[in-house]
Design a protein around this nucleic acid. Structure first.
Lengths: 206, 206
DNA sequence: TAGATTGTTAATCGATTAACAATC
DNA sequence: TAGATTGTTAATCGATTAACAATC
């Protein structure tokens, strides 16, 4: 049962738990505990148990959690027990790096198309992907039923690109442009802006 | 006065405020209000006023905030009223994209060196920067007094790279490797992992 | 002046932690 | 059994919001 009242801050920690559990599984570890997981992630064991308990009892008293089982359950919960097609908009350095990044394949995602508005880039290839014109963005994305997109265009074009994505039916946007996007309430946006992250830390430097 | 008790969650919003104010300034707007800013950022006006009030009174009743003045103040608070040298570790697609990214220059940062352990990459150039061997990482970074680094290496090397950075005196790390790092308490880490961000959103997709 | 908006307080809301019975 | 660890409750802690006097 997916209850709507689960806090978003809890949802945001699930991928971190999953990633660490996958690492444990990769190392051949079969069982772990909230204490061990918390230790490795810098999170309290109580918080991990509380977060998981929103979704069901996954552990055994005295024993802990079976790593593979918990991985499987978390993948189901986050719906990454499948492969989501993802569109990249922008075929600059960043867009091309994202399109070629090997880290998506085993985590539920596949980049299936890339767009740019620069005629010098259209019809060039990034790996196996032919760069398409943003003119065709809306048709291609809605035709393919793509729900997830990564925006890697300059700040000045990001809102227009976002509007086109939303019109095409995209419901989740990972935005690399250094700008806050305006989207309808049913569209999710996550922000990645390295300068913003760095500025968060410079506050603490002496 | 920089009081230690200011919540980190407040600090994390300051760069967002700054970014939006810089955009307003760029558009030639001279005055704004907590209401307008909140509207644009999807944050309540009360929260913006409360956040800013940790650092001083910056506005005028009835009028709001002078954009340029608030930009200036926020830059001082976050210490980005200067230029921080930043090291990039990893000269793969991502590391090179970061080293060439034009978005740092006006936000307080300059990439001043890039490292890789691949002999095929060492001594090649990324823009003006010569790729240096990770063998020299510790000496170069401590010699130059660099306090900020971005880690763009595979997950398997990220902790070792981090240890070297910490030994060299780095106090702020922006980590692109999909792994939770272990660092001393005086070292700050921010995480950017696109797959994690995407997984956060797939939970909500239907 | 009248209208607008700040800075701040107190109230509300939500998240984290501590503690422990249940039980493997 | 004895030791360990979960799942859950209640208490604590912290963050957000509402409201408004002050004042531009």
């Amino acid at each position: 049962m997916r209850t709507a009242e689960i806090p978003d801050i809890v949802i945001g920690r699930l991928p971190i738990y999953l990633r660490e559990l996958e690492l444990l599984a990769h190392n051949g570890q079969e069982v772990t505990s909230s204490h061990e997981l918390g230790e490795r992630l810098g999170i309290s064991s109580a918080q991990i148990r509380k977060d998981l308990s929103w979704f069901g009892p996954f552990g055994k008293q005295g024993t802990g959690y079976h790593v593979n089982y918990l991985v499987e359950q978390l993948r189901k919960i986050m719906q990454v027990d499948r492969e989501w097609p993802v569109a990249v908009v922008g075929a600059g350095d960043l867009g091309r790096a994202l399109a070629r990044y090997g880290g998506f394949a085993h985590r539920g995602f596949r980049i299936t198309c890339i767009f740019d508005n620069d005629v010098a880039k259209i019809d060039t290839y990034v790996g196996n992907l032919r760069v398409m014109s943003t003119v065709d963005l809306k048709d291609e994305i809605s035709l393919r039923g793509i729900q997830i997109a990564m925006v890697a265009v300059p700040a000045g074009s990001a809102q227009a690109v976002t509007n086109a994505l939303v019109e095409a039916g995209v419901k989740a946007i990972l935005n690399y442009a250094p700008i806050t996007l305006s989207v309808p309430p049913d569209v999710h946006v996550q922000y990645i802006d390295p300068a913003t992250h760095l500025q968060h830390m410079t506050y603490y430097l002496r």
